[in-house]
């Protein structure tokens, strides 16, 4: 199996994911959980981009002097473009849900919302 070379990019991206995960698991405030989700998302996107990076190559736009062999992997970039859009959409929806929840229960603490439920 090909173990990827652990560079600073990987380390940073995975750290971001873990920080986000920590927030999702431990924080009680709904807004903080949403922020953590966003951080996680950023981490994932960074990780995807850094997987596609080839050392010393330039952006994958075909132009003067840059052919397919001189460019970094374009597929993760397309993936991340999609993922960013999805992430923004889910965040927007989650935020509107949070607004509704706050209007209904008067709190953003997940424990209390659970207790008030039903």
């Amino acid at each position: 199996m090909n173990v990827p070379h652990i560079s600073i990019y990987y380390f940073g991206a995975i750290s971001l994911v873990l920080i986000g995960l920590y927030g999702v698991l431990v924080k009680k405030n709904l807004m903080k959980i949403l922020i953590s989700l966003s951080i996680m998302e950023t981490g994932v996107n960074l990780l995807l981009i850094s997987i596609g990076y080839v050392s010393g190559k330039s952006a994958p736009i075909l132009s003067e002097g840059i052919g397919p062999t001189q460019a970094v992997d374009p597929i993760p970039q397309a993936l991340v473009l999609t993922a960013i859009v999805i992430g923004v959409a889910t965040t927007a929806m989650a935020l509107s849900a949070a607004i509704i929840i706050y209007e209904k229960y008067g709190t953003l603490n997940v424990e209390e919302i659970r207790r008030l439920r039903g």
């Binding site: 995960l21 698991l25 959980i33 997940v110 659970r114 439920r117």
Partner: peptide, 12 residues
């Protein structure tokens, strides 16, 4: 138990 955070824990 209906607690989303608990499910996140299971996943993690």
């Amino acid at each position: 138990n209906g607690n989303v955070q608990a499910y996140s824990w299971y996943l993690a």
